[in-house]
C-alpha cells in the first residue's frame, strides 16, 4: 500500500473502524434474518386469486402492468429523467481521440446480431403475457442492439432524425399516462383497467414501453445529446451521435 504521493488511493484500504462497524452491521442483519419469528406471508395467494381479472396469465406481468402499474409508470419516468439529466450536461472541450472506422468483422457482427436481437426482443414481448418476459427484458435487449450500433458507429444512425429520437423516448411514458387517464374517463380510477379491455391495454403498453426503454438505454450509453443536422461540420452526413464520446 505504499504508493507514490501523486497517485490517488485506488482500492479498498484497511480501515479498521469501518471494518468493525460493517462486521457488526452484518451480524445484526444476519441475526434479524435468522431469528425465529412468524413466517412471512407473501402476496402470492392474492395475486393468484385475481389473476383472471388482470387480462394476462403471467403473474409477474400482471403485477407489473396491472396490480402495481403505478411502479412501472414511475419507473418509465425515472428512465426518462435520466436521459434528461444526461442531455443537460454541457459537453466538455476535452475530447477523446477519434475511433477508427469499424472493420469488416465488427460490421458483419452487427449485421448478424442486430436483427437477431430485435427478433428475440419481439419474441419476449409476445411471450411475456403468459410466461417469463415482457417490456423490461425486451427493452433491455433493444437497448443492447442500440449500444451495438453505437459502438460500431453504424451508418444506420446517420439516417436517424433527432426529432424522431425525442418522440420515441417520450412515447412510452406519455402513452402510459394516456392509458391511465383514459381509464379515468371511463369512470374508473387512475390506471384501473379490467379483464376484457385490459389485455389490449397491457399489450400496447408493453410494446411502447419496451421501445422507449430500449431507446433510452441506448441514449444513456451515448452519453450526451445528439448533435443536430445544423451543427455538424459537414452537415450532409453528420450522424445523430458523433462517435467520440
Amino acid at each position: 500500500m505504499t504508493k507514490g504521493p501523486s497517485k490517488t488511493a485506488s482500492a479498498l484500504k484497511r480501515q479498521w473502524p469501518l471494518a468493525l462497524l460493517l462486521v457488526l452491521l452484518f451480524t445484526a442483519l444476519a441475526w434479524a434474518y435468522l431469528a425465529p419469528g412468524p413466517a412471512a406471508v407473501g402476496l402470492a395467494a392474492q395475486v393468484d386469486a385475481s389473476l383472471t381479472a388482470s387480462g394476462v396469465s403471467s403473474r409477474v406481468t400482471a403485477v407489473l402492468l396491472n396490480f402495481r402499474a403505478y411502479d412501472t409508470l414511475l419507473e418509465c419516468f425515472v428512465i426518462f429523467l435520466g436521459v434528461m439529466v444526461v442531455w443537460s450536461l454541457r459537453p466538455t472541450t476535452v475530447t477523446a481521440p477519434r475511433q477508427p472506422q469499424a472493420g469488416a468483422i465488427l460490421s458483419s457482427l452487427e449485421r448478424l446480431l442486430v436483427p437477431l436481437m430485435v427478433l428475440v426482443a419481439g419474441y419476449l414481448l409476445w411471450a411475456g403475457s403468459n410466461q417469463a418476459g415482457g417490456a423490461f427484458q425486451a427493452g433491455a435487449i433493444l437497448g443492447g442492439a442500440g449500444v451495438l450500433l453505437l459502438l460500431d458507429s453504424s451508418p444506420l444512425l446517420a439516417r436517424l432524425p433527432k426529432g424522431g429520437l425525442v418522440w420515441g423516448i417520450c412515447l412510452g411514458p406519455f402513452y402510459f399516462l394516456v392509458v391511465a387517464v383514459a381509464a379515468m374517463l371511463r369512470g374508473r380510477h387512475f390506471l384501473e383497467y379490467r379483464a376484457p379491455e385490459a389485455t389490449l391495454a397491457i399489450v400496447t403498453l408493453e410494446a411502447t414501453a419496451a421501445f422507449s426503454i430500449g431507446l433510452c438505454l441506448a441514449t444513456l450509453f451515448a452519453g450526451r445529446q445528439p448533435q443536430g443536422k445544423s451543427r455538424g461540420e459537414n452537415s450532409a452526413h453528420s450522424p445523430a451521435w458523433e462517435e467520440d464520446s
Binding site: 417469463a132 418476459g133 427484458q137 433491455a140 435487449i141 437497448g143 443492447g144 449500444v147 459502438l151 450509453f221
Partner: peptide, 18 residues
C-alpha cells in the same frame, strides 16, 4: 426467470459496455 432474462441482458451486456 423474469429476473434472469433481465439480468442476462443488462448485467452481462449493457453494464459492461457502460
Amino acid at each position: 426467470p423474469d429476473l434472469a432474462l433481465a439480468e442476462a441482458a443488462i448485467g452481462s451486456g449493457l453494464t459492461g459496455a457502460l
